[in-house]
Amino acid sequence: MNHSPLLEKTIELLREANSQEPVLDLACGSGRNGLYLINKNIPVVFADIKETALEQVKSALSPPHCEVKSLANFWQVDFEQDSFEQEELKPLAGKSFSAIIVFRYLHRSLFEQIKQAVTAGGYVVYETFSVDQPQFGRPKNPNFLLNHGELAELFSDWQIIHSFEGIIDAKNADANNESGKQAIAQIIARKP
């Protein structure tokens, strides 16, 4: 599966923002998006709860990608701990990233942590399913679906570079989705 086309709109911004801190690929899964950044010489921290997912990313960085392997770091972490009230249990507390990219993942209680972990002038690149998705397939659980305008509202105090909500043609993206359509919301936002 290829990287999200949204990253192509962002690559120059991420290069510009990436002076001191890496990009966090939050809930990276197979790492398709972070691997795209690595191949563009942008340092990435691949973070996921599943060790198998991180091992898959590591193996994708094997030869012939040895020269970019030094740009990758790996962090096995549970982003869905329910004890976020306690500062020491917040996974992003005290962390700093030039950008955080999130694709096809939604855990609403992380948004404030994400906003705090991005350095000033850094970016959030977020893309996931919206409430219109159930007509096309999974996910159907409203806990995993963005409401209309939710991303724009969450980042209303940031500079919004790009915002999109609608239906895309995503053939081959999901074998369980015969229509080839997906309802998504996207945002690229720059922290003041």
Results as ranks from 00 to 15, higher is better:
Gln76Thr: 13
Val77Asp: 06
Val77Phe: 05
Val77Leu: 09
Phe79Ser: 04
Glu80Met: 15
Gln81Trp: 00
Asp82His: 11
Asp82Trp: 00
Ser83His: 10
Phe84Trp: 11
Phe84His: 12
Glu85Ile: 14
Glu85Leu: 14
Glu88Asp: 14
Glu88Gly: 02
Glu88Ala: 13
Leu89Asn: 14
Lys90Gly: 04
Pro91Cys: 06
Pro91His: 01
Pro91Thr: 04
Gly94Gln: 11
Ser96Tyr: 05
Ser96Glu: 12
Phe97Asn: 02
Ile100Gln: 01
Ile100Tyr: 02
Ile101His: 00
Val102Thr: 14
Val102Met: 14
Phe103Met: 03
Phe103Val: 03
Phe103Ala: 03
Arg104Trp: 00
Arg104Tyr: 10
Arg104Pro: 00
Arg104Ser: 05
Tyr105Glu: 02
Tyr105Asn: 03
Leu106Trp: 05
Leu106Cys: 03
Leu106Arg: 08
His107Trp: 13
His107Pro: 00
His107Val: 08
Arg108Gln: 10
Arg108Glu: 06
Ser109Lys: 15
Leu110Tyr: 05
Leu110Ala: 08
Leu110Val: 05
Phe111Lys: 08
Phe111Leu: 13
Phe111Cys: 05
Glu112Met: 08
Gln113Trp: 01
Ile114Trp: 02
Lys115Met: 10
Lys115Arg: 15
Gln116Gly: 10
Gln116Trp: 04
Thr119Tyr: 00
Thr119Ala: 13
Thr119Cys: 11
Ala120Pro: 12
Ala120Thr: 13
Ala120Val: 11
Gly121Phe: 10
Gly122Ser: 09
Val124Pro: 07
Val124Leu: 09
Val125Gly: 09
Tyr126Glu: 02
Tyr126Trp: 12
Thr128Cys: 03
Phe129His: 09
Phe129Ala: 04
Phe129Tyr: 14
Ser130Gln: 09
Ser130Glu: 07
Val131His: 14
Val131Tyr: 11
Asp132Gly: 14
Gln133Asp: 04
Gln133Lys: 02
Gln133Trp: 04
Gln133Val: 04
Pro134Lys: 03
Pro134Gln: 01
Pro134Ile: 03
Pro134Cys: 04
Pro134Asp: 04
Gln135Ala: 14
Phe136Asn: 08
Phe136Cys: 09
Phe136Met: 10
Gly137Gln: 06
Arg138Ala: 15
Lys140Leu: 12
Lys140Ala: 15
Lys140Met: 14
Lys140Trp: 11
Asn141Cys: 07
Asn141Asp: 15
Asn141Ile: 07
Pro142Trp: 06
Pro142Lys: 07
Pro142Ser: 08
